[in-house]
Design a protein around this nucleic acid. Structure first.
Length: 1025
RNA sequence: GGGCGAGUAGCUCAGUUGGCUAGAGCGUUCGCCUUACACGCGAAAUGUCGUGGGUUCGAGUCCCUCCUCGCCUACCA
């Protein structure tokens, strides 16, 4: 074995070995036959927009740790990999890329599409190519990190199997009235020109102004009375679409204006002054900024402000949209009475604001302008300010109890808050109802349950249509007809007096028996007396779709929000709704029917904070809805683990623009995948952020962090310890035989086995509680402190001649490899290859769990030592050895005794017997050449151990008395201080009376020990004179 | 505005239901190439546990006040 561990020499070979062994492929049949328990994780599918960053590395390391540990524990383990098409993000990336290449971007393809030249198809093909490239890169990265996903089951949110799930889900929701068409104000991104969901809007604080604009009051004949009302606004340019001015009816000064009218300057539209208690009365002293800046008159622009929209609804106000989809001022989208305001047409929102301000100022109608800072919504993709924009969109009625209620109810009861249950009494999990499937999902750390709960309590309907090309096309075909086409409309309605056509005549092709159940219809009456019918078609009925199209039905041009397909991830990846069809779609697998039965719900979802609302909630809703029958179905996972976010050393997010990101592949190159994984694991505490100081590596020009040295050093330590152990085992082979009785082992061997039991328990607990730092620390302590510092050092003189000890050495190294494997898979597998060929002999009770193979370490069993191997006697005894050795080393260090010099230990009484019995542990670890009960003849150094004074001699040719005096005096001072503190505690009657008796006794024992130590130390000091 | 989190050694972080003299790694200092490992070994130094109060025999830990920072959330008057 080489002097140091060199990851690059082993990682790809080990990876190939795992793949050859088919080690990561899950067999759901074993779960269904009861041969193994299931353990499954769905990867949060990374966006195909970019390579994986360090946050992904963290999240995937965590998942792989859980997956590998459970695979070794004997679970039939599935880790499903995949990627997300990330609609708007990917489309934007490709658009930018095309523009950068001078190809004009999506705008060119939109022109082509309008010209009937298949622009849409051409563009989506380009996106598809981009996706293929990044999907391959991401998959390669996962493999380089060692992620033991079942790559034969890799999915993509837009592949055939996922697409079928999307179609089916949409169809069912549509049929059940949970998807509807609505004309409402949406969050409009004028740059990408699509609607956005509420959670795709990011609030940013903007330094802006309040403008105070004067509108002249007019009389019934439209003549100005000379009075003015002054509206206060942050968006003066939207005044063009004002359809009212509102005042609070309880406003003593201004209520008198209600019923009067004002004229919009330049536009010359006459609009009413209305009363609405939404309006805040002005109060310059108020801490509420609205009241502070308000004028008492609120301009009402229903088409460009959500609140104004609601006021408009209440008062039946006209809605005048003054903007084009790119948010420029336009009279082509619902604005007719432009009047003298032509000067503003064609301006951007920003330019229009400047122009409106100037026009009002010139006309002496600008009363004031004040500085004001407020939060404005921006598109999370284009970062342009979002425009509230009136448009027709599809909505998913997530506020319906069938969706929201089930998401609320699936949370475990002890993570619900009283307030939420008070506000939503029906949302209390119905744990006592058999088959309810409620109350089964648990967040770790538990505080994140509140985020989840609050989100649902404040939910609004979800706008799911996007004006994009890259995504799942909405499976709805629409047409305007002069009469309703749904037979129900005929039966429900009285058509007397109207010449309704015969249904059979006109639409009978829709009602053929073979189309029973394949379509669902929503129909709406239009203001002009026509009808719009929306027909949603169940997946797999292409001929029917063609038939609709030949009947002048057109498919909705929009696509679905990416999160709609992500929400189906736990279902679509497992072949829902048609596992047999999924078998046909994917030539790598033919066990989809078993997959859904065996692995939904999954064991745990591991993800980042911001995903709780975007994704976790929606998966919960959909999984429960679509798998439900009498009751709502199962939650999609049992546990949700939310990991910390990695920030740089200054607490900033890692980002491309700051240049403070660390690329996982760079770290794998410089430190190895295992080192990266261990470091990330060790950083994963239960807090919400963790910091990683970022430095520029001058040799490579890449960002790195000294943190990764921790992992590299640990791997190197393991490598060298293994090298040493294997050397010992190869030069003196173990003779196989019956399992050894632990009673026949020496103290150090029993101690080491006991430490393995201790570490195994600690590690099992840590993994169960998702405490990954604790897992890493347990590994560190076991490998470095117990095994290397003490065990290997202690066995050096005896291992060559003690065959039982060699058997233990081999077993212990083997166990360490197994316990470490989940976090450092490559190096442990590499060492395991070497260790495997070395003969072994067992110890009674030192067991492993059963797995389906043991060809590779990654498939081998997890340590399951029986509790009896936890040896308190050996731990106590070796603990005393460690204390004695430390005491001696301290004396050696103070006297600058070089490591090579072997010294003489003078002990008497019981300790002499103990040292004799422990031999050679103290001698080996403390550099002792002779243990004697004789008093030292020449110069010596004294030390205190367990309340008695002992000596060391032959430290040097002569011991420096002043160094010794100084050391002993310091020790004495420390003891004095401790004794004083403890005496103080014991002299407090409150403590003695009220503290638990065993604690008081413990304190008394401690005091007695310290007093003895002090006497011994003082005696030693006195002798020095 | 509301919610959540963080503030402990120079740095990064532990510290579970209140109970030994508050810990680890890195860094620092001293001594060592003790043939598994200098990506190492041994020893050492460093803390007003953000502030101010309270509960308690006892508070880093529980309660209240305030300060600083971060994140999430909120109808752009």
């Amino acid at each position: 074995m080489s002097k140091a561990y060199t990851p690059a020499e082993h990682e790809s070979r080990v990876w190939d070995k795992w793949i050859r062994a088919n080690a990561f492929h899950a067999d759901p049949a074993r779960v269904l036959t009861g041969d193994a328990q299931p353990y499954s994780i769905l990867i949060p599918p990374p966006n195909v927009t970019a390579a994986l960053h360090l946050g992904h590395a963290l999240n995937n390391s965590i998942q792989d740790i859980l997956i590998r540990a459970h695979r070794m524990m004997g679970f039939e383990t599935l880790w499903m990999p995949g990627t997300d098409h990330a609609g708007i993000a990917t489309q934007t990336m490709v658009d930018k890329k095309l523009k950068a290449e001078g190809k004009g971007g999506i705008a060119e393809y939109k022109k082509k599409e309008l010209a009937g030249e298949n622009g849409r198809e051409q563009f989506t093909q380009l996106v598809q190519d981009f996706k293929d490239e990044y999907e391959a890169r991401i998959t390669d990265q996962l493999k380089k990190m060692g992620c033991s996903c079942d790559y034969e089951r890799q999915r993509f949110t837009m592949d055939d199997i996922c697409a079928r799930a999307v179609r089916e889900a949409f169809f069912q929701l549509f049929k059940d009235g949970l998807i509807e068409r609505g004309k409402r104000l949406v969050n409009w991104d004028p740059v990408t020109q699509t609607a956005l969901a509420d959670d795709e809007v990011e609030m940013e604080d903007i330094d802006s102004h309040f403008w105070y604009m004067k509108y002249p009051v007019v009389d019934n004949s439209g003549n100005e009375t000379g009075e003015f009302v002054t509206v206060a606004t942050t968006r003066p340019e939207t005044y063009l679409g004002d359809t009212a001015v509102a005042v609070n009816p309880n406003d003593p000064e201004r209520a008198k204006f209600i019923g009067k009218s004002v004229k919009l300057p330049f536009v010359n539209r006459v609009i009413p002054v209305i009363g609405d208690d939404y309006v805040v009365a002005p109060d310059p002293e108020s801490s509420d900024s609205k009241a502070k800046y308000a004028s008492g008159f609120l301009k009402v622009t229903p088409a460009h402000d959500p609140n104004d929209y609601m006021i408009g609804q209440r008062h039946n106000l006209p809605i005048i949209n003054i903007m084009a989809p790119d948010a420029s001022i336009s009279d082509k989208h619902g604005w007719e009475d432009v009047g003298d305001a032509q000067r503003f047409l064609g301006l951007s929102r920003e330019d229009a604001r400047v122009a409106v301000e100037a026009a009002f100022r010139d006309a002496n109608l600008l009363a004031d302008k004040k500085l004001y800072s407020h939060a404005v919504g921006h598109s999370y993709r284009s970062h342009a300010p979002v425009e509230p924009y009136l448009s027709d969109q599809w909505y998913c009625r997530v506020t319906d109890d069938r969706l929201r209620g089930n998401a609320q109810r699936c949370l475990v009861p002890d993570q619900r808050t009283e307030q939420s249950i008070k506000d939503w009494p029906d949302s209390r999990p119905k744990m006592d109802t058999p088959g309810s499937n409620d109350g089964t999902m648990t967040f770790h750390p538990s505080r994140y349950a509140k985020t989840y709960e609050t989100w649902h309590d404040n939910l609004r309907d979800w706008c799911i249509s996007r004006q994009l090309w890259w995504g799942h096309r909405i499976p709805v075909w629409s047409k305007v007809t002069s009469f309703p086409i749904d037979p129900k409309a005929y039966s429900d309605r009285d058509w007397s007096g109207n010449s309704a056509p015969s249904l059979e005549q006109k639409y009978e092709h829709l009602w053929k028996p073979e189309y029973q159940g394949v379509l669902a219809i929503h129909e709406q009456a239009n203001a002009d007396g026509t009808w719009t019918s929306h027909i949603c078609v169940k997946p797999g009925n292409e001929e029917f779709e063609r038939e609709l199209e030949s009947d002048a039905y057109t498919q909705d041009p929009d696509v679905l929000d990416t999160w709609f397909s992500s929400a189906l991830w736990p279902l679509s990846t497992m072949g829902w709704p048609n596992p047999e069809a999924a078998n046909n779609d994917d030539d790598r697998a033919d066990d989809f029917p078993a997959l859904l039965a065996a692995y939904n719900p999954t064991s745990v979802l591991t993800t980042a904070r911001e995903i709780i609302t975007l994704w976790v909630s929606r998966m919960a809703m959909f999984n429960r809805y679509f798998l439900g029958d009498k009751h709502a179905g199962r939650a999609p996972f049992k546990d949700v683990f939310i990991h910390a976010m990695i920030q740089d050393g200054e607490g900033r997010k890692m980002s491309k623009s700051l240049g403070n990101g660390v690329d996982p592949l760079d770290i794998i190159d410089s430190h190895g995948a295992d080192a990266m994984r261990f470091t990330l694991c060790q950083m994963t505490t239960q807090t919400q952020d963790v910091r990683m100081p970022v430095e520029l590596d001058e040799k490579t020009g890449k960002n790195t962090s000294p943190k990764f040295d921790i992992g590299r050093n640990l791997c190197n330590k393991l490598w060298n310890a293994s090298k040493f152990a294997i050397m010992m085992l190869e030069s003196n082979p173990i003779e196989p035989g019956m399992d050894i009785d632990p009673q026949d082992l020496s103290l150090i061997d029993r101690w080491m086995l006991s430490r393995i039991v201790h570490a195994t328990n600690a590690i099992n607990t840590s993994l169960r509680k998702y405490q990954f730092k604790d897992y890493a620390d347990a590994i560190y302590d076991l490998l470095w402190r117990d095994f290397c510092d003490w065990y290997l050092e202690s066995i050096k003189p005896t291992v060559a001649t003690d065959p039982n000890q060699r058997a233990v050495l081999r077993l212990v190294l083997d166990s360490i490899l197994r316990l470490m494997h989940p976090v450092t898979p490559f190096i442990t597998e590499t060492i395991f290859e070497r260790l495997e060929s070395i003969p072994s002999r067992g110890v009674i009770g030192f067991n492993h769990s059963e797995t389906r193979s043991s060809d590779t370490l990654c498939q081998s069993g997890w340590p399951e030592p029986i509790d009896e191997l936890r040896d308190e006697v050996a731990e106590d005894a070796f603990g005393r050895v460690q204390s004695l050795v430390s005491a001696i080393r301290e004396v050696r260090a103070h006297n600058k005794v070089i490591a090579k010099r072997q010294i003489v230990l003078h002990v008497a009484g019981k300790l002499a017997d103990d040292v004799q019995r422990w031999s050679p542990l103290v001698e080996t670890n403390a550099g002792i050449r002779e243990v004697t009960s004789d008093a030292p003849g020449g110069s010596s150094a004294a030390f205190t151990f367990e309340g008695a004074e002992y000596h060391l001699s032959d430290l040097a040719d002569a011991v420096d008395a002043s160094v010794e005096r100084e050391r002993l005096q310091k020790e004495l001072d420390g003891l004095d201080k401790s004794i004083k503190g403890i005496e103080g505690r014991l002299s407090n009657p409150g403590y003695v009376d009220k503290a638990p008796a065993h604690l008081v006794q413990q304190t008394r024992d401690q005091l007695a020990q310290l007093v003895k130590d002090r006497e011994a130390t003082r005696a030693a000091l006195d002798k020095l004179g």
